[in-house]
Design a protein around this nucleic acid. Structure first.
Length: 210
DNA sequence: CTATAGATGAGCT
DNA sequence: GCTCATCTATAGG
């Protein structure tokens, strides 16, 4: 197997100190890295969703709801917010700053490093299904509730520079039909035409950077 | 390719 | 007890 680059550097704290909608777009193309005793796995972020509590009915922090689960959302940006959904673990990046409980859900990756380990963890051979969904990518990378509250500026779980998308698409978030008005907010972002996105959807807006 | 049903368990009212 | 920020298998076009 190829060697993991020794000069891979986590993005600094100030990267996370930008408005949540900006951060959700800035994360596209970045590399998400997880180191475990089994090995290193990493993939490029290709799909995100913004959750902007307390005014966002789809957010766990709606109405400033503060519980053991949502506690980390009230802390500084750049921490990991992991939680269990049905039988899966989902991974978010805390944003918004202290006492502003917001987050960016990572919904899909393009596998880049440690693909053999991902295949073992997922029990499948095809690369396309390894990380094209929020519950799938955490299983492939070995992200668990143990990672709750970890700073993303340091190993074993961190985000580094990757590629710059030529175009970003935006549309409605997925799986929040119970969220009233908030269900129509265009707070889902993905790398245009990337085949590792969790599902296809007509984009309402396109941000072109060519 | 799309649509749908069922499994599933932590978190909260 | 009720609610899900999901996934997989299966059936059908």
């Amino acid at each position: 197997m190829q060697e993991f680059p020794k000069d891979m550097m986590p993005l600094p704290q100030d990267f996370y100190d930008q408005p949540t909608l900006e951060l959700a777009k800035a994360l596209l193309g970045c590399l998400l890295v997880k180191e475990t005793t089994e090995g290193i796995t990493a993939g490029y972020i290709v799909e995100t969703e913004a959750y902007i509590g307390p005014g966002d009915k789809a957010a766990h922090s709606f109405n400033n709801r503060r519980t053991a689960r949502t506690e980390v959302m009230f802390h500084r940006s750049g921490l990991a917010y992991t939680y269990q959904m049905h039988t899966h673990c989902l991974f978010n990046v805390v944003s918004g700053g202290e006492e502003r409980p917001q987050a960016v859900l990572i919904r899909a990756l393009e596998p880049w490093y440690g693909i053999e380990l991902m295949k073992i963890r997922r029990g499948m051979e095809s690369p396309i299904g390894l990380t094209n969904g929020p519950g799938k990518l955490t299983k492939s990378l070995g992200i668990t509730k143990e990672d709750y509250g970890r700073p993303l500026t340091l190993p074993p779980l961190y985000i580094a520079n990757g590629f710059s998308p030529e175009s970003i698409s935006a549309g409605k978030r997925i799986g929040i039909d119970n969220a009233g008005e908030a269900r129509d907010y265009l707070w889902r972002f993905w790398v245009t035409n990337n085949k590792f996105v969790s599902r296809n959807q007509k984009s309402e807006y396109v941000f072109d950077f060519k």
